[in-house]
Amino acid sequence: MSHITWEAPFCAEGANCFRIGTDTEGNAYIAVTGQEDRPLTDSREALRALILEIKAGKADHLL
């Protein structure tokens, strides 16, 4: 696995924290804080699309 540069943790209410990271090969990663050794990975474009859809409210029904 490439070296991942992690952003600061994002925490919602309570202890639900996750981190977003990227590597120099164009991959993006999401991991639960403290479990960065087991991230989900996809392209940066896929991560960008996911974030835009969440911001647009398309995941609100999951809350």
Rank of each mutant, 00 (worst) to 15 (best):
M1W: 13
M1D: 07
M1I: 04
M1P: 02
M1E: 02
S2Y: 01
H3L: 08
H3N: 05
I4H: 02
I4R: 01
I4Y: 04
T5F: 10
T5E: 12
W6C: 03
E7L: 15
E7I: 09
E7S: 15
P9R: 01
P9G: 02
F10Y: 12
F10I: 14
F10R: 13
F10L: 11
C11H: 00
A12K: 07
A12C: 10
E13K: 07
G14A: 00
G14D: 02
G14R: 01
A15E: 07
A15H: 04
A15L: 06
N16F: 06
C17L: 00
F18P: 00
I20R: 13
I20M: 05
I20V: 15
I20A: 10
G21D: 03
G21F: 08
G21Q: 06
T22D: 01
T22Y: 07
T22F: 03
D23H: 09
D23F: 08
D23T: 09
T24L: 02
T24D: 10
E25Q: 08
E25A: 12
G26H: 11
G26F: 03
G26Q: 09
G26E: 05
N27Q: 11
N27H: 11
A28H: 03
A28M: 08
A28K: 05
A28G: 15
A28P: 04
Y29G: 09
I30Q: 00
I30V: 15
A31I: 03
A31V: 06
V32H: 06
V32N: 05
V32A: 14
T33C: 05
T33I: 00
T33N: 02
T33D: 03
T33W: 00
G34I: 06
G34H: 09
G34S: 09
Q35N: 15
E36L: 04
E36F: 08
E36C: 09
E36R: 10
D37F: 10
D37V: 09
D37W: 06
R38M: 13
R38L: 14
R38G: 09
R38K: 15
L40C: 12
L40E: 05
D42Y: 04
D42A: 14
S43I: 02
S43E: 02
E45I: 01
E45D: 05
E45Y: 03
E45K: 11
E45N: 09
A46L: 05
A46W: 01
A46T: 15
L47V: 12
L47Q: 06
R48I: 03
R48Y: 02
A49S: 03
L50R: 15
L50T: 13
I51H: 04
I51N: 05
E53H: 06
E53A: 14
I54L: 08
I54A: 15
K55I: 00
K55F: 04
A56N: 11
A56V: 08
A56I: 10
A56L: 03
G57F: 13
G57Y: 07
G57Q: 10
K58E: 14
K58S: 13
A59F: 13
A59H: 12
D60R: 15
H61A: 13
L62M: 12
L62F: 08
L62T: 14
L63Y: 07
L63C: 08
